[in-house]
Design a binder for these strands. Structure first.
Lengths: 183, 183
DNA sequence: AGCGAATATCTCGCTCGACGAGATAATAGG
DNA sequence: CCTATTATCTCGTCGAGCGAGATATTCGCT
């Protein structure tokens, strides 16, 4: 039967000592640490987690050359329209973004990141990115392939995990596990 | 002048095309995906992000054979005592944990995870962990060392990052980073 | 053109997680 | 024992995000 490990205490299922677990926990630790890093950036600039996620989404879009509308941003963050409006009010009030009426479709509100916010982000996340690149330079192609493969595999596993309906998955993953959307 | 990339649009600083950036972004994507995975677990079980983090902290402690008190848990999550009490009320109400008065020090409240919650977590995160282990088995020691090294390095970089404590700007930016703690 | 349906965002009222301040209970020290 | 300290809980409040619905703009159909 199950061996007791701590008399007088919980069963405390034995730990799973496979050597691979070390890396699995390490990955989780990195994810947590990156989250805390963002949180630090947030509170340091009087923002909340959502605001930071929004800025990142906006910069990603900018980098990709696409314009980000209020609706798309809200969808990307899993917020409904009311929450999105509140988010934009906050970001705009803080001077991080600017609302611009859509040129083609004037119902839309295109959200543009202020140069200052970009700079703010770069100054905070830049060093971490540089350090990461530096670390990666120390590995050969065989190793880089492993890192890529492992991260890509975990990402897929975490993303695809138990989805009952294997319907056409849009290119950039929908809100996942969430879809408040109104209207 | 900086070369224009998109006429009629923002300056949109050019993308940083270094090949290492692919992995950097991949790591970020994994972190995001793991976060969403937890969020999925949370909403599927009518919990919030904090509740899941709490359960994880509790199970980590359990695995390490330490007992987790209300105070230590709150500190680990960055909650103040009021928030911690509310959190425990929620978790206990949902039947995921149990409050037990400290045996030695009866002021303390030891939080114990119910077996059902452990099972719930295992059934949700288990497959992802198994898949990760499986992926890792496909690499040789040289590659595993790279994965470990990279993740460990990024973790350190994200954790240690800039904390020079410039000047205690009390009233305006108190929570800075972490440790609300009251008392 | 003209009108109703669809779409994009905003406004209002509410819920609930988290905070600050302080109350209560138990322990440790002299 | 009496006081300082520690651990948790209670109470009142703030604010992020939700649901419902209002408003503005565009699209499709006849």
């Amino acid at each position: 039967m199950a061996p007791e490990t701590e008399p007088g205490s919980e069963p405390a299922a034995q730990p799973d000592t496979r050597p691979e677990m070390e890396i699995v926990h390490l990955l989780r630790a990195v994810a947590v640490e990156l989250g805390l890093h963002s949180a630090r950036f947030a509170s340091r600039n009087r923002m909340h987690a959502t605001d930071v996620r929004a800025l990142i989404a906006l910069m990603d879009a900018r980098r990709a050359g696409e314009e980000m509308t209020a609706g798309r941003l809200g969808a990307a963050l899993g917020l409904n329209s009311a929450g999105t409006t509140a988010l934009l009010d906050r970001l705009e009030g803080a001077g991080h973004v600017r609302r611009v009426r859509g040129a083609a479709d004037r119902r839309k509100v295109v959200v543009e990141v202020e140069e200052g916010a970009v700079e703010l982000g770069r100054s905070f996340f830049g060093p971490l990115i540089e350090r990461s690149v530096e670390l990666l330079r120390g590995y050969d192609d065989h190793q880089l392939a492993a890192i890529r493969g492992f991260l890509g595999g975990v990402r897929q596993a975490a993303a695809a995990e138990q989805s009952p309906a294997p319907s056409p998955s849009r290119s950039s993953a929908p809100p996942a596990g969430r879809s408040p959307r109104d209207t």
